[in-house]
Amino acid sequence: MTIHHILKDIFGFSQFRGQQEEVINSVIDGNDALVIMPTGGGKSLCYQIPALVNEGLTVVISPLIALMNDQVTAMKQLDVAAAAIHSNIDSGESSEIFAAIDRKELKLLYVSPEKLLSSGFLAYIKRQEISLFAIDEAHCVSVWGNDFRPEYVKLSILKDEFPGVPTIALTATADHATQTDIIKQLRLKNDKPYLSSFERPNISTEAKSGLKRAEQILHFLREHPDGAGIIYCLSRKSTERMADKLAANGYKARAYHAGLDAKTRQAVQSGFQNDTLQIVCATIAFGMGIDKPNI
């Protein structure tokens, strides 16, 4: 099955966008790649299609459970064999996933960097036929990025443990210094990133006075009654105050910040993605990887 047949028959698209086809062919040929595309620009296809073309298992490293679950759900809806292993699944489900891997039925496996690098798991996947490592939100590897995570730096070990397996690193957030750092930290053999345009003509920016913020926000929402959105706040307390204010005015709004437990954060993100929640009042802990067309 060619990449064009997969694109049309499985994903429902008639043609590739931008540099997608060039990236996909390069990765299928066994090359590393750093892919920088805006959210919604089609980054995921750059590893999903190679996963379906090549024999073996593609391991996708993702920083957030919610992102893993969203991707797995989307893949299953397309009848693509995918699964995620993380702390929110029980031992029974985990055993089923490992059994599917052993039977070579799985094409995409989503894990966190912590899980991937654990000694038992790393030893396990070394016994499997791995076709590709895809590192999502790759800016987390760079000290120059806003979301630096030390665990991402340790992913350079993959080049020692799996010397013949290509790596594709993907992000929507990387300036030149961050791009250079990603290539260096992950030891990518291709030092030329695939960079798409970040021009978003559908997005506008406007600065207003900070006086009477809540009143200004409520006025904006009354003018846009059917939209969904994220209101970023400077502190955890202010996210909760703003969410309470909006809820009192009849809006489906909730707070999101790092001080909430994992179950609550998951519920908020799922509600927002599924349109049961209209507004999220958040710190910068929220938003990475969100691909929602009606914001």
Rank of each mutant, 00 (worst) to 15 (best):
M1N: 11
I3E: 03
H4R: 13
E21K: 15
E21N: 13
E22D: 12
N25Y: 08
S26K: 09
S26D: 11
N31F: 11
P38V: 01
T39M: 03
G42R: 05
V53K: 09
E55F: 13
V59C: 05
S62N: 11
S62E: 06
S62L: 01
M68V: 02
A82N: 03
I85Q: 01
D90Q: 14
F98D: 01
D102C: 10
K104G: 03
L106P: 02
V111D: 00
S112T: 08
G120R: 10
K126N: 10
R127V: 13
F133Y: 10
F133N: 01
I135F: 00
I135T: 02
D136T: 04
E137C: 03
W144L: 06
F148C: 04
R149E: 01
E151G: 00
K154E: 06
P163G: 07
T167C: 11
L170R: 06
A172Q: 01
A172H: 04
N190E: 06
D191N: 15
S197K: 06
F198A: 03
E206S: 11
L211E: 13
R213M: 09
Q216K: 14
Q216P: 05
I217W: 02
E223Y: 14
A228N: 08
C233E: 02
R236T: 05
M242R: 07
A243V: 08
K245L: 14
A248I: 02
N249I: 11
G250E: 07
R254P: 04
K263A: 11
Q269Y: 09
A285H: 06
A285K: 03
F286H: 07
G287Q: 06
